[in-house]
Amino acid sequence: MKTIKAIHKASYHPIADLITYNPLPSPKLRQIDPFIFLNHHGHQTYPKNNNGLPFGPHPHRGMETVTFILEGDIMHKDSGGHESVINAGGIQWMTAGSGLIHAEVSSENFKKEGGDLEILQLWLNLPAKLKMTKPRYIGLQKEEITDFEISEGKGTVQLIAGDWGNHKGSFDTLWPIFLSTVYLNQGGILQKEIPADENIFFYVVRGKVKINGAIIPFRNLVEFNNEGTTLHVESSEDAVFILGHAKPFNEPMVAQGPFVMNTQQEIMQAYKDYQDGKFGSWS
């Protein structure tokens, strides 16, 4: 069985009027290579005529973002010409690669009508050989994403990337990774085989679960030891969690602001390239 190394409680870091919790990185955990950052926004209810999400145009290089829209919506626009509005249940996967500018804001309808909002954004590192790959973006609505039942109907897996049995994830990735959102009803069980040499990303979004006798409430990140191959999770109440796993890159990582590279010199070059307009723009 997989064993727990530590449990990390998300810290509260509001952004303007946006409720935000951040479990990774933390003073005790820099990364779970190649998973490097997570922001959990909400749950909160916006009134009518609100300002929406505050993430106006900003650059990225050397990493990828995966955005989970549980409630509300996100209107995406980037310097590569991609635009979309993804609604509740949908997923966005953006490869910043060599560099782009993007904005993530609420749709005009959400700002006008308001409503519930809960969104998570996970940053994934890119290996050195892919850091300068061409940027790309894919946004999928809930109905476009693979899902299937587990635990005799007491759970549902939204399979984002990788394979589980005969099921294939909805996003084709540049490097091997498994990523999913799991919904377990009270009494549900998830059991999955994961190679011992892969790092696990496990964050409880809602409810609480039990792993090896330990109760993990929502807004907690579980760090696992690299031993055993069986992950066994039980839900003591209705729960939602993000489950991912991948082999670590074991490369130097320098993260500064919106850029994630392998050396400080590459970070300095990223800032220069951005200032020189090499990340593109839009009117």
Rank of each mutant, 00 (worst) to 15 (best):
K208G: 05
S180D: 09
G162K: 11
T173E: 09
E193Y: 07
G244I: 01
N185V: 02
E149D: 10
G162H: 12
T156I: 13
P176S: 13
W175Y: 15
A161D: 11
D197L: 05
H167Y: 15
L243G: 06
K247W: 09
T229L: 08
V240P: 00
H245F: 15
A161W: 10
S235F: 00
I194Y: 12
E149L: 13
L243D: 07
Y203L: 06
A255V: 00
G244E: 06
K208W: 00
T173M: 15
H167P: 02
Q158K: 15
E198S: 05
W164H: 15
E234M: 01
N199I: 00
L179N: 11
V209S: 00
V182F: 11
E144L: 03
D163E: 15
L179E: 09
G169S: 10
P195I: 03
A246S: 14
G213Q: 01
M253G: 00
K168V: 13
L243E: 08
G153V: 02
R206F: 03
I216W: 06
Y183A: 06
L190R: 01
Y183I: 06
F148H: 08
I177Q: 09
V182P: 04
V157F: 08
F148R: 05
A214R: 09
P217C: 02
S236F: 00
T181Y: 03
T173C: 05
K192H: 13
V240W: 05
D172P: 04
I242C: 02
G207P: 01
G188C: 04
T146F: 02
V222R: 07
T156W: 03
I211C: 01
E149C: 00
A161Y: 11
H232G: 02
G169F: 12
K208S: 14
W164S: 12
F249N: 14
E227G: 06
D163R: 14
